[in-house]
Amino acid sequence: MIGSNHFLRPPGARTEEEFLSRCLQCGQCAQVCIFDCIQMRRGFNFFLAGTPEINPKVAPCYLCMRCSAICPSDALHDIDIYEVRMGVAELDRKKCLTWKEELLCRSCYERCPIKWKAMILERGEYPVITDECAGCGLCEHVCPASAIVVTPTRFQDRSNDPGKKLS
């Protein structure tokens, strides 16, 4: 995954600018992560090398919030999981097995850490992602049809960013 820019920051991360100026690259968040989803970034870009990244395709974040509690330099805020905005998941209804009415899947709904807030089931069957989505990437990880893609917060237009006041 070297060179891929499509990675998430750990939960509770500030905006990318603020995060980069505060992160000491000590890797404590990667070491405390019990799911081994936080990796220290590799590569030759020494502005980014050593900073934490999460690749939801490889290992998603389970929102245990240990990393944001341990961060010594406050690059990661220690906040509730309801306030986390790592990114926003988008569901492609043309690919989703349930929306295509091929089979009753619900993998994403079963795994979502903020069930019924970030993800609701329309008419009890069809998954819909709401504004409360934390962007942890669990749904992207488990989706069998890869219908869900999480866009990191830093790539979004900041004017309609729901997590603006927190991140």
């Binding site: 000491l24 690259q25 000590c26 890797g27 404590q28 070491q31 405390v32 341990i70 010594p72 330099s73």
Partner: peptide, 15 residues
Amino acid sequence: YGNFLSFQAFGVPFA
């Protein structure tokens, strides 16, 4: 936890 940039042992931080 940590490396030589920032480190903590038994709750005592070093940086």
